[in-house]
Design a protein around this nucleic acid. Structure first.
Lengths: 329, 329
DNA sequence: CTGAAAGCGCTTACAG
DNA sequence: CTGAAAGCGCTTACAG
């Protein structure tokens, strides 16, 4: 593969001139430019990014960390990130972590090692989250959670309040046997707070057997949820901390011949695309996914430009979307 | 940020020695190693990957291109890729393309520019696909399609045959008014061939009005599909080239009060997780997603190791999975 | 408008 | 077991 020296020699100019042509430096004469471009074309020369990035110490590359690609929620957030990155002529690369701290660290290392200039972590694991808020020294933004400090600014909705609102809705429908299906994402804790607060406000005692924990994977989640629904004294309402879990609840209910919403009402969280095509369609909380992404990216760019900039956390609005799974008949 | 020289000076050794410690070179004395490690720790030194990659001309990084992250099908393929990459101590980065040739080229450029050593393209756009099969000079593997040549080896199932099998199944149920819902992925063409072949074999005339085209996005797809179902002489069976489209068909049918499977049977393609939690559950074609990914990665490594290696295309098995959406009542 | 030269942060024969 | 030095492929003041 040709390098910049080969091109320079072939074109009868210095490597400095080739570099200037490559970077559209205005000082190159049209004639020289033409000749160099011709040689570049002829030799099919491709500039080596490693040399360029090393020298200029910028890769114009950002990382977006997501737990998995199965949850369509993340797709929307990422497209928000991409739109801002594009406007700044940066590329973004997607990294799936499976909520595995080791893998998160691996990508964080790529920032340390200068392969990328910064990173946005969407729904980080609690371990990674802890690390970021205590020892982080690199450009990082957390998306989907709002506890934070100077080590890593955050973009999120008010998760506790959103959960509170969803559970209030279930209570308003007349339910008092309300289950929570939790998961291992960090925000789940805040959503649980909202759930507890709503119950407390209405004097509903918390039944520990109705606080379940489910995997984000469908097959596992269905098994987890089935146990909850098969108990003698089963709940009449379920609040799940994620739509994928709520969809597993719908499926498990169908398998157990429990009618939704007649015998069981269900609320999810996230408003993923699939939630509106389910049968019944799913009540859920809608987060401003695109905006969460674009805000995160904007904050990251601020941090990259000024490592000591004071960046305010951003809390965005959310909506309760009522659909068939909690319709009153 | 400290660099290798700072560490060397502080430890009272040469940069060569620091480098050796970094790379676990066995020739370093225990005492020296200890001292260097101490300084690395103290200075929180992080080796710069750009310098390392430039010098050693390997980044140990692979790219996996997927059209979008909304389709859970890709998640499984990617995890197959990751398992093989991990075994080779390579990292993989996910890139979403929206089936946009420009974006595909952008990531291809990262390979050209040495940021990554190779690339696996899952369901490439036809433009990108053409480019790869004619002018590609870099380590690339195509996943999801099997036409190919020496420029880019491929891993796939026999898409035409799988579609043929699915449509045969619809015919066996007694249907003759069978619609095809197509999309813009490259494999769609092959799946259409299978559809046509099955009809032809059974002397069923092709009705052009029953060959529809849908976007892979839910909202758009539902609109596209609705038109098909609202015609006077509507089909009684639908074969969709992707599960996400088939799910849109289920949703549109529900909205139009058309009972599935009683008044309309539906088959999808891909066997994504959601297909089994739909109501009714979705008949579909299952591809060996994980294996498709792991084979692709293995082929890519072969190509990286030997740029002129002859690599055979791989065609894997598939299964027709019959579920409620085509049950006979 | 163009070139010679220094340097980005590493690795690796080579010599001792 | 260790170091001096060359070099990976670029960019960018500096000088002319």
């Amino acid at each position: 593969m040709a390098d910049i020296h080969t091109v320079a020699k072939e074109a009868g100019v210095s490597v400095a001139t080739v570099s200037r042509v490559l970077n559209n430096h205005p000082s190159v004469s049209l004639k020289t430019r033409r000749k160099v471009e011709e040689v570049i074309e002829k030799l099919k020369y491709e500039p080596n990014m490693l040399g360029k990035s090393l020298r200029s110490s910028q890769s114009r590359l950002l990382l977006a960390l997501i737990p998995n690609i199965s949850n369509p929620f993340y797709a929307k957030v990422v497209s928000g990130i991409e739109s801002v990155a594009k406007a700044n002529r940066y590329n973004i690369m997607l990294c799936t972590t499976d909520s595995n701290p080791e893998r998160e660290l691996l990508y964080y290392d790529m920032v340390k090692k200068k392969l990328a200039e910064g990173l946005i972590s969407i729904d980080p694991s609690s371990e990674f989250y802890e690390m970021l808020t205590t020892t982080n020294r690199y450009p990082v933004v957390i998306c989907g959670e709002h506890v934070g400090n100077d080590h890593a600014p955050c973009v999120s909705i008010d998760n506790a309040k959103a959960a509170y609102k969803a559970v209030k809705h279930l209570i308003a429908l007349g339910h008092r046997k309300i289950a929570l299906v939790n998961s291992n994402i960090y925000t789940a804790g805040l959503r649980q707070q909202g759930y507890l607060k709503a119950l407390e406000e209405h004097g509903i005692e918390v039944n520990p057997r109705w606080i379940a924990h489910a995997d984000l994977n469908f097959e596992n989640a269905q098994q987890d949820v089935r146990e909850l629904l098969m108990t003698e004294d089963r709940p009449t309402a379920v609040f799940a901390v994620s739509d994928t879990i709520a969809i597993s609840v719908l499926k498990a209910a169908k398998d157990l011949d429990i009618k939704v919403p007649e015998e069981l009402v269900v609320s999810g969280f996230d408003n993923i695309d699939f939630s509106s095509v389910m049968n019944p369609t799913l009540t859920t909380i809608s987060q401003p996914m695109f905006e969460m992404g674009s805000h995160s990216a904007a904050m990251l760019f601020k941090r990259i430009a000024d490592r000591s900039a004071a960046i305010k956390n951003v809390i965005l609005d959310h909506d309760l979307i009522i659909r068939e799974s909690t319709m009153n008949y």
